[in-house]
Design a protein around this nucleic acid. Structure first.
Length: 887
RNA sequence: GGGUGUAUAGCUCAGUUGGUUAGAGCGUUGCCUUGACAUGGCAGAGGUCACAAGUUCGAAUCUUGUUACACCCA
């Protein structure tokens, strides 16, 4: 006998281990030709499970379990990425506690430490995914720094280099002065900052007392100015173009140039140009042939290119002192308050410095072309489709991708420099040496590039590197192209776009997935983004502890409506915990009534109309869930799928069918009892199957607890397939009629304050023969659920009856002196008033010539039928009211 | 500044190609400890679908504009 409530804490761990040990998660478990593959968005190895992961992985698991039950050979490829900066930070912080830096250890020792850390405490997020129920094939877990994946990275780098799609260049990059590395545009966050606009007067050479005023938000960069730009059409400055100014403090003679970049409306209309420290200035400098002077070092302190007193000074300190000196020189024109955007490193949180260095770049613009085409031609589609535009916008305006990082932890760039700076890019040192020998004609000392690659470079290969590429493995041929990528919009650029580029380039033009499903963001209860700084982060594992993984999963999938963010609501999670209890108790009820065996039972040959009805309802529910999940039309409608199985289980099976079933269970019609038991058992099993992808734990637990010998665990049992014609329309109509009658009686009873326990008689007048037969057939059910004690048909109505109209029949509940006549009269009148409004509306519609001629025939006919029905009902309600009035 | 969304019951949200007397969950009100379940049952109240104009026989749904909010990019 099942307990009264389901206890997730007792079941979840045990079931998860059982699934793992049984090999249920593994790909290749069956020999189906039909594969279904998802690669997990690899979480950072430093990461902890947050709500976004919980949503992301719940949705993946739903699809994976669904397709697994449908008999496909499913691979859900898991793993983590090595998170270059984040991981290096974690380990450096640990070292700092012992008072040492990575430089004390040296590169090799430090990397050993990182691996040690990874073995001991890295990847704890994997265990957290287990708690969610994620059915990944853990035997295939990969890490972006694995030997195999690293080999893929080297091969890709070398090939792209040799194709000219990777190159080394001296360009301005986003420099993170805290981590001493370049970062990509995407890792820079623009933040609005209240600051100032400083206006400096630069003296014009040879024109004593004449100045040009330049406005800047970054005074400290003036030491690196190599020009002043004005708009070519700006009348104020036209005569100055071609002249020179003497840069204050520095004394450098720098030209005034004409460039459209100078906006006459902004500031003074003249801008100082610092090509080495501003992206726009760099372009202007290039156009005007200005000198490029780098005035900072890797810590964003001023270097030897500036006057002595400023050397080694930190950039913000320098700002203050330069403003002070300019003021002392009498060259400070004015200072205005100014709000502008300042770039910050998303990891370091410090202000990013545009910095001129040698870096490695990937020619993203070229790689993007096939990636754009793949979406244009529909080889890959985004769901919801609106993300397509976001993708295009970015891809069509893509900048060179800076792929080198000045870190130690990561894939070291396979490039070696000869003594003359010649570059040899090869997969191994031996090959590089050989190439150098071929080049120089003798052995030369080579030094390897010290940089590593951007973590996203290796993540971009994930859909094929995890399958064994560059080897031609059976997995690669079977599971690539993968099916659907499920991820958040925030990494469309970081990851999705780059996987598209690399997949198409290296997998013979085959995109890494045919569908990209972009899900929403999980917000807090008030709709705010969760963030550590706000302190509004909810740990999904706390919710799992309190309500069970199934409740959290069901909440997430019910909330995953396309195009809308998920607002976390603990109350709703609790509600879905209640749903597990409801299901549990329904199963318990079945168990108590010996609904167990149905061997040889054919649900589609049941005789009893109630059983025929529920079988049809199961089929409808299955179809709704399947169609919502599979990608036929718009697909991936997790919320629709969830609500279909939820409302079937609770509002159809529990609320109606099990109530109906109580009669046969307590009666003495043994044949009916047996059929009902088998049907109930069968329906319960169908619910467990259909619900399993959403709530894997409670369903598996019940599957194994009902005293039935099962061939398989639920996780690998077959998704139901029902014959055509499973829905018996006549049974459906009949049971809806019965439910409507019961609901109607309950409604008037409750409204007229008939005590819930009181059993009252029923008079059923003016019904058709078919309806009378139905009432006879279902009298047991109706009388029990509507609390009736006696019925008569076509009988005279005693004075003082509650009356309503059900499908053309007058249903009366005689209460004799016990009822409040005025209240009943008011109730009927309200009903009549409501119906009257409805009829008026219909009449107006049907009286409109244009509607009758313009609307499709079936719509007009339907409206006519509605009107006819309403009029019949109206007549009967009026009779009922008249009868009351006669008293 | 450019772009993309969103606006429906007290709250959170569904609403598929225009044919609805606009749905759900939570909350709320009344009744009910009825032998599966009070983590429950039954019933009810609650919405001029942000605003304005338009297209149409017909608009929550399509078009345009306005307002508010959110996000992305500069």
């Amino acid at each position: 006998m099942l307990d009264k409530t389901y206890r997730p804490q007792d079941a979840e761990g045990k079931l998860y281990s059982k699934w793992m040990e049984s090999g249920a998660f593994a790909c290749g478990r069956n020999d189906s030709e039909d594969a279904f593959t998802i690669v997990i968005p690899p979480p950072n190895v430093t990461g902890n499970l947050h709500m976004g992961h919980a949503l992301n992985n719940t949705l993946q698991d739903i699809l994976v379990r669904f397709e697994r039950m449908r008999g496909k050979d499913v691979l859900w490829q898991p793993g983590t990425d090595h998170a270059g900066i984040a991981t290096q930070m974690v380990v450096e912080r640990q070292l700092a506690e012992q008072g040492i830096t990575r430089h004390d250890l040296g590169r090799e020792k430090f990397i050993e430490k990182v691996w040690e850390w990874k073995e001991q405490s890295g990847g704890s997020i994997i265990g957290q995914l287990h708690r969610l129920g994620a059915s990944c094939d853990w035997s295939r877990e990969r890490f972006t720094m694995d030997e195999g994946l690293s080999r893929a990275v080297r091969k890709v780098f070398v090939q792209l280099y040799k194709e000219g799609l990777i190159y080394r260049d001296k360009r301005l990059v986003n420099w993170d002065p805290k981590f001493h590395t370049a970062i990509s545009d995407l890792e820079v966050e623009q933040k609005e900052v209240n600051s100032h606009m400083w206006h400096f007067n630069y003296p014009i050479e040879g024109e004593e007392g004449r100045f040009i005023t330049v406005a800047t938000t970054r005074p400290e960069t003036m030491l690196g100015d190599t020009g002043v730009a004005v708009h070519p059409e700006d009348e104020r400055y036209k005569d100055l173009i071609g002249k020179f100014v003497i840069l204050p403090i520095v004394g450098r003679r720098i030209p005034i140039v004409a460039d459209d970049y100078a906006d006459p409306e902004q500031g003074s209309g003249a801008v100082k140009i610092t090509p080495a420290h501003d992206f726009n200035d760099f372009e202007v400098g290039k156009r005007a042939g200005l000198e490029v002077i780098n005035i900072m070092d890797e810590n964003a302190c001023l270097n030897d290119q500036v006057p002595e007193k400023y050397r080694g000074m930190e950039r913000f300190q320098a700002r203050k002192e330069i403003v002070a000196e300019i003021e002392a020189l009498g060259l400070l024109n004015k200072i205005e308050d100014h709000v502008h955007m300042v770039p910050y490193g998303d990891r370091s949180g410090v202000v990013i410095e545009p910095f001129l260095t040698d870096q490695w770049f990937a020619d993203a613009a070229t790689l993007a072309q096939p990636a754009i085409r793949a979406v244009e031609t529909g080889q890959t589609k985004f769901v919801p489709a609106k993300w397509t535009n976001t993708y295009y916008d970015w891809m069509r305006n893509i900048q060179p991708w800076c792929i080198s990082r000045q870190l130690w932890w990561g894939h070291r760039i396979p490039a070696w420099f000869g003594p003359d700076g010649m570059i040899f890019v090869e997969e191994t040192e031996e090959e590089a040496i050989a190439a150098a020998k071929a080049h120089y004609g003798r052995d030369e000392e080579l030094s390897r590039d010290t940089d590593v690659l951007d973590t996203w470079f290796s993540s971009a290969l994930w859909p094929f590197s995890t399958l064994g590429w560059p080897d031609k493995t059976p997995e690669l041929s079977k599971y690539y192209q993968t099916d659907v990528l499920i991820t958040g919009f925030d990494i469309i650029f970081f990851w999705v776009a780059r996987m598209m580029m690399m997949g198409l380039h290296f997998m013979e033009g085959e995109a890494p997935f045919h569908t990209v499903y972009i899900h929403a963001l999980v917000r807090d209860e008030q709709g705010a983004k969760m963030s550590k700084s706000k302190g509004n982060v909810v740990d999904p594992l706390d919710l799992v502890d309190n309500y069970g993984a199934d409740a959290l999963r069901f909440f997430l999938s019910s909330s995953a409506a396309q195009g809308r963010d998920v607002r976390l609501s603990e109350q709703r999670v609790e509600g879905y915990r209640n749903f597990t209890t409801k299901l549990w108790n329904a199963a318990r009820f079945c168990e108590m009534n010996e609904c167990r065996e149905y061997e040889g039972f054919d649900p589609f040959a049941v005789k009893d109309v109630v059983n025929r009805w529920i079988v049809g309802e199961v089929a409808k529910c299955e179809a709704a869930v399947r169609e919502a999940l599979e990608g036929q039309r718009d697909g991936y409608r997790f919320n629709d799928a969830s609500s279909a199985i939820y409302s079937f289980t609770w509002n159809v099976f529990c609320d109606w069918y099990l109530e109906f079933a109580k009669l046969p269970f307590q009666g003495d019609d043994e044949a009916l009892k047996a059929e009902t038991r088998a049907t109930a058992a069968w329906v319960l099993d169908q619910i467990l199957k259909i619900l399993h992808p959403f709530m894997p734990f409670v369903t598996e637990e019940l599957w194994g607890s009902l005293g039935v010998a099962r061939e398989n665990d639920l996780i690998i049992s077959d998704w139901p397939v029902y014959p055509a014609g499973a829905v018996d329309a006549a049974a459906e109509e009949e049971l809806e009629w019965v439910q409507g009658l019961i609901t109607g009686i309950r409604g008037v009873r409750s409204e007229m304050n008939v005590p819930a326990g009181a059993k009252i008689p029923l008079i059923f007048n003016e019904g058709s023969d078919a309806h009378k037969a139905r009432l006879d057939r279902h009298w047991n059910i109706v009388s029990r659920l509507a609390r009736l004690e006696d019925k008569s048909m076509d009988a005279e109505l005693p004075k003082g009856s509650l009356q309503f109209v059900h499908d053309g029949a007058v249903v009366a509940l005689p209460l004799a002196g016990a009822m409040d006549l005025d209240a009943e009269k008011a109730r009927l009148e309200k009903e009549i008033g409501k119906l009257n409004g409805y009829i008026t509306g219909l009449n107006k519609k049907l009286g409109n010539e244009k509607f009758v001629s313009g609307a499709p025939d079936n719509v007009v006919a339907a409206e006519r039928e509605k009107l006819a029905e309403a009029e019949v009902k109206m007549a009967k309600l009026k009779d009922a009211a008249d009868r009351l009035g006669e008293l």
